[in-house]
Write a protein that binds this DNA or RNA. Structure first.
Lengths: 109, 109
DNA sequence: CCAAGAAACTGGTATAGCAAGGTAGCTTCT
DNA sequence: AGAAGCTACCTTGCTATACCAGTTTCTTGG
């Protein structure tokens, strides 16, 4: 049981939430997401992101379209669906509640 | 991929953090923890808690002592160790950073 | 003694992140 | 044209953890 392991566990599940938010703001492809997450100090690697995106797609929470690139191979640009928007609203509430619960427990003494 | 499943995933990893905090405040046994977590709407069941406590014990982050009960079988009263206190400080920082990162991502538009 | 309850524990299942490797298309340089 | 390198997407094997549904152990009360 190491700190880094626990940190990973704490991040778990938040990724899906964050990525849905990023996609909800407009069309993006994988590298865009990684850049933004990294900037916010929420580290992600490709091997984590791609399966996650596929899960979101399978669940019809996001959709994508292929777009040719000026430099390099084509990209999958993701956008959020109606179902995804609804789902995201639930997650927003869950997150708020979770922060509140944690705050309640960790700030007591 | 259901909302409830995602909610579970978001809660994952926070449990360890919350439980360490509860133990850090003073000696408690399993039912105390469950009561407090339930009160804070952080639902946990016994089958989750006991393995977690054993992990913390194995990692020397907490220790326990048996205490006779007036009514019923003896209880394991847990308290935090020095290592556990250090660990908890790291987790506090991790949590703050995580909240901040998530806030950054989810509040943008 | 036996039933009931409390406390601690266990095995099986599912999910998710990570590390590492693989495939294919495009660009650049010789 | 050919080779090298980059970019983007995808897959596999591993590990860790929570949940569910029991099981065991101990104590008390009828």
């Amino acid at each position: 049981m190491t700190a880094s392991n626990t940190q990973i566990q704490m991040r778990k599940g938040l990724l899906e939430f964050c990525i849905l938010h990023i996609i909800a703001r407009g069309e993006v492809y994988a590298s865009d997401m990684i850049d933004e997450l990294t900037e916010a100090k929420m580290i992600v690697v490709e091997g984590t992101l791609y399966p996650l995106l596929n899960r979101l797609k399978t669940a019809s929470l996001v959709s994508y379209k292929w777009v040719e690139s000026d430099s390099g191979p084509p990209r999958k640009y993701y956008s959020i669906t109606e179902d995804g928007t609804e789902f995201l609203q639930i997650l927003d509430k869950t997150w708020d509640s979770l922060v509140q619960s944690t705050q309640l427990i960790t700030s007591k003494r």
